[in-house]
Simulated assay, not measured.
Amino acid sequence: MGDPIREAALLDAARKEAGAPKPVADFVHLHLHSAYSLSEGAIKTGKLKDLCLAAGMPAVAVTDTNNLFGALEVSDTLAAAGLQPIPGLQLSLASDVKGARPPAIVLLAQSEAGFRRLMRLSSRAYLASASPDYVAAALSWFPDEGTEGLICLSGGFDGPLDQLFRLDRGDEAMALAARLAELFPNRFYVELQRHPSRRARPVESDLVGAADDLGLPVVATNEPFFPKADDYEAHDALLCIAEGAYVHQEDRRAVTRDHYFKSASEMRALFADLPEAIDATIEIARRCAYRPRTRQPILPRFTKEAARAGAGDDGLEAEARELERQAREGLKTRLASGALAAAEADYWDR
């Protein structure tokens, strides 16, 4: 039996060589790290746009680690190219597992309310963390913050469910899955990733079993960190630089050569036995209908002062007078507070 992934890649190449129109992909990436996943992701915004267009992928979710730094840039760039940007976040959760990176879930914004929750959760995680090297949210925040407008994926290999199953803490994993399903009613998906070269105990059967037992849907992701498989070595060096490690070290963070932006046909071949996991990506993309947009700053106006002075309705003249008044009062206070290095008139002339 041949390699289905290689066959899918060959089919894509043959279609391109024949000049056949690119079909609309029946898979979208919902867990992807851009270059804004600092010292971790290596996909720039412009490159992401090109990858989506080349793959015929109508939508993509950018889920950078604990931040939304690139959300607006990604939104404007992809939308201008006719693509659907799905704002998201990979949010780390506090864990009792010592010496390990905190596990993370993936949150996708369905609406403006959901995006506002992403912003609050990201900010709160940074403010509540004692060290910038360990940023993590608490699951107990979600009842207060609310989850409406958010879709949650379990996080894949670095997610809390995978981590607990690998540690043979299956009961805790089941309890956590049930809790996430409760927090995100009809909006929680068990995330499956297939990277065969991972040197860790596979837990996909545990994840699928948990989904079946709890009546939860599954979704397939590949979690791309770099554009093409050939970029693996350069990305591996990036991770080493970020951690102050060496390439030959065994006890360091590493991803696999398969963590690239795979095509829809490659992903469908990879999950040929679980087509519903691929179909779920399109379902989720259709459930998301919001993107952040560029807008002018919203600044206060001195409308009461403008009305008293008889200025125009926009209050621009009043604002200018108010700024001048505050500047003069501030300078007067500074001049009275200490010795001058020049004549007082020189300060006023400036």
Rank of each mutant, 00 (worst) to 15 (best):
C240I: 09
F271I: 10
H248K: 06
V219W: 13
R252C: 08
A264G: 15
L180E: 08
A306W: 10
A42L: 10
Q249E: 15
S34C: 01
A289P: 07
D96A: 13
L150N: 04
G146E: 05
L214Q: 02
T63K: 09
E322Y: 14
Q193I: 12
L167V: 10
A264W: 03
A113I: 04
L161Q: 03
D3G: 05
A113P: 03
E148K: 03
G149P: 07
A306P: 05
C240P: 05
P102K: 11
G99L: 08
N67E: 01
R124V: 12
E204I: 04
L53N: 01
G209D: 12
L323N: 10
E182V: 10
A9F: 00
Y246N: 07
R194H: 05
L139N: 13
D12I: 01
R295Q: 06
L78N: 11
E7G: 00
Q296D: 10
T63H: 06
L183W: 14
L216C: 11
A80K: 14
G19L: 02
P102A: 15
S34E: 02
R101M: 09
A345Y: 02
A269M: 07
P103R: 14
R350D: 03
A306F: 11
R15P: 08
K16I: 09
D258K: 04
F225A: 00
C152H: 14
M267D: 02
A320Q: 01
L167F: 00
P87K: 13
G330Q: 07
T303L: 15
V247D: 01
A277S: 15
D236V: 03
A311G: 04
M1W: 08
N67T: 05
R334K: 13
A336H: 00
D251W: 08
R6G: 01
W141D: 15
A25R: 07
D50R: 07
L192H: 07
E40K: 11
A210P: 08
G330L: 12
E276M: 12
L270H: 00
G338D: 14
A306G: 15
D12Q: 01
P23Q: 10
M119Q: 14
F226T: 09
P224Y: 01
R286Q: 10
R287P: 02
E73G: 13
H235R: 00
P102E: 06
F271R: 08
D64C: 02
A277K: 04
V219H: 08
A264P: 01
N186K: 08
T77G: 05
L238T: 05
P132S: 04
D158T: 14
D231Y: 02
A210Y: 03
E7Y: 01
A181D: 14
L108H: 13
Y290I: 08
A200Q: 05
D258P: 05
A336P: 04
A264E: 04
G312F: 13
L51P: 06
A181W: 10
A20C: 08
V247W: 05
E324M: 06
V190L: 09
P85C: 07
T147M: 06
